[in-house]
């Protein structure tokens, strides 16, 4: 059994700068409309106006940085009719471009929008954990890029044992796919099963 990894992100450090998104886009040469790593903004709270012209509020906001979580129960793999979407021995979920029919079924099933169709390449694409970099002892592009040092990665079992699986809004409940994403919660983190419309930057997630 080869060593397998999980992503780690410290939401108390993440400032939502999106250097990870652009580093990934540049390094993997992704076209417009595709971003393997994405940064959802979770915002909530309300304002109260008082008679003296003052305000009180309980506003909060935080970011997460999410790519493919190379889940333990990868619903994308289960949904794939061709076997193109598969989980390798080292736990990386990846697309075999020579088989992919580009039906988008994996994308429908993934609550993280990890698989994305590259229309010009005619197949689904997704985060491959920078396999080519891992193989030569380098960090994934996004991890190496993070100006806030909020992103990291490490041995899957160790990380998940220590931090559990990401179960924070606006992500789906961890039980859906068992993501290999360990998150240090922001102080204002909301539970994943909240039904509040906290996702504040849908437009930026393309």
């Amino acid at each position: 059994m080869k060593k397998s990894y999980a992503f780690y992100m410290d939401a108390s450090r993440c400032m939502g700068c999106k250097a990870c998104v652009i580093a990934c886009k540049d390094g993997h040469d992704l076209p417009l409309g595709l971003n393997w790593r994405r940064v959802p903004e979770c915002t909530g709270g309300a304002w109260a106006e008082h008679a003296d012209g003052t305000y009180t509020q309980n506003v909060f906001s935080y970011y997460l940085s999410v790519a493919c979580n190379h889940c333990e129960s990868p619903v994308c793999v289960k949904a794939c009719p061709t076997g193109a979407m598969h989980k390798t021995e080292d736990g990386i979920v990846q697309v075999d471009a020579t088989r992919c029919v580009g039906c988008n079924n994996c994308a429908w099933n993934c609550p993280y929008s990890a698989p994305q169709l590259d229309k010009s390449k005619k197949h689904m694409t997704k985060c491959n954990f920078c396999r080519e970099r891992l193989e030569v002892g380098q960090k994934p592009l996004c991890v190496a890029a993070c100006p806030a040092r909020a992103l990291d990665f490490g041995p899957r079992e160790e990380l998940i044992a220590k931090y559990g699986r990401a179960n924070i809004a606006p992500l789906p409940p961890a039980s859906m796919t068992e993501p290999n994403l360990a998150v240090v919660a922001h102080k204002d983190a909301q539970p994943a099963n909240t039904r509040k419309p906290f996702l504040a930057n849908k437009e930026e997630l393309s």
Binding site: K78, A79, C80, T82, V101, N104
Partner: peptide, 22 residues
């Protein structure tokens, strides 16, 4: 028409064991 790469369509029959789409 929904498929991005029709040439790979034959593969869609390979996952009958797991995928409802197959």
């Amino acid at each position: 028409m929904h498929l991005a790469n029709i040439m790979h369509a034959p593969f869609t029959l390979t996952q009958v064991g797991t995928a409802w789409l197959s």
